[in-house]
Design a protein around this nucleic acid. Structure first.
Length: 260
DNA sequence: AAGTAAAGCAACCGCCTACTT
DNA sequence: CAAGTAGGCGGTTGCTTTACT
């Protein structure tokens, strides 16, 4: 566990006046907190901090438990399905990390937030556009997310896709959309909505496979976009935004989207 | 091998809201 | 109703690790 090694090697700051410890948690502190919660349950974090013999704030205890010690916390790489879900839910709700995390069992809001900041924003920078811009959001909806769907479909030949995974890709995340999308729809298929019409996930996949133009509003040629690219790679993000694709997207963003 | 930059991530901070007194 | 408190959330920081020169 990287975190424990990480924590044990770092110095711990202590507030002399209050006797409150800050900084990384030690194994001993983790053990005290976990044991206390195992006996008394979660909640009343200030009491937890006091009665567990921890010189931490209640907030710090809560955060440590939720983000690290909780038994159902999932660690490791974000899967393709999770990436797709994060992109979709973020397009609906914005930076509502805890709300997004509720739909990714075992993932914490902190982890999703970190994923977004380190991976997604990085890609926006490579495209030389703001992550909040319409251009980047469109790139996500019309290229990146369908691509993720395709990869999920491809990988499902070897391992089953989450049965209740449902993605609703909306054309534009207006305030109205956001109000209407409080809860993601739960369906057995994946509905992809583009500005003038609606496509199912399989249609998107077939379209991508056959090279038909599913994104006429943008004037993007999916087949052309894909040529020469290795989309069989596991890491969708890095394979999606290789140098060739970035140049292509930059060109499209300049030529087409500015006119939409 | 050493130095530097970039990436990844745990933890803190400050604000907001809900609840209690 | 107002004040105080606790919990929750998003933004940010800073340390460690990894990649690169």
């Amino acid at each position: 566990m990287r975190g424990i090694i990480f924590a044990s090697n770092r110095s711990v700051e202590e507030d002399d006046h209050m006797g409150v410890r800050k900084g990384p948690w030690t194994e001993e502190e983790d053990s005290k907190l976990a044991n206390y919660i195992a006996t008394h349950g979660e909640g009343h974090w200030n009491s937890v901090a006091r009665f567990a013999g921890l010189r931490r704030t209640g907030k710090s205890c809560r955060l440590r438990w939720l983000n690290y010690l909780r038994p159902d916390v999932r660690r490791g790489n974000i899967t393709l399905q999770e990436q797709l879900l994060i992109l979709d839910l973020h397009s609906q709700w914005g930076n509502r990390w805890s709300k997004i995390a509720q739909h990714l069992p075992g993932r914490t809001d902190n982890e999703i937030k970190n994923y977004w900041r380190t991976r997604v924003i990085k890609q926006a920078k490579q495209l030389k556009c703001d992550v909040k811009s319409k251009q980047f959001r469109d790139a996500m909806r019309y290229v990146w997310m369908p691509r993720l769907l395709e990869q999920i479909q491809a990988s499902s030949q070897y391992q089953p896709v989450q049965p209740n995974l449902c993605i609703s890709i909306t054309a534009s995340a207006t305030q109205q959309d956001m109000c209407q999308s409080e809860v993601p729809s739960i369906e057995s298929s994946c509905d992809i909505q583009v500005p003038s019409s609606s496509y199912t996930g399989s249609q998107v996949l077939n379209s991508a496979e056959n090279g038909s133009d599913l994104f006429p509003q943008l004037g993007w040629d999916v087949q052309g976009f894909e040529q020469g690219n290795d989309f069989g790679a596991v890491d969708s993000l890095e394979s999606f935004l290789n140098e060739e694709n970035i140049l292509f997207l930059q060109q499209q963003l300049c030529d087409d989207l500015s006119c939409v």
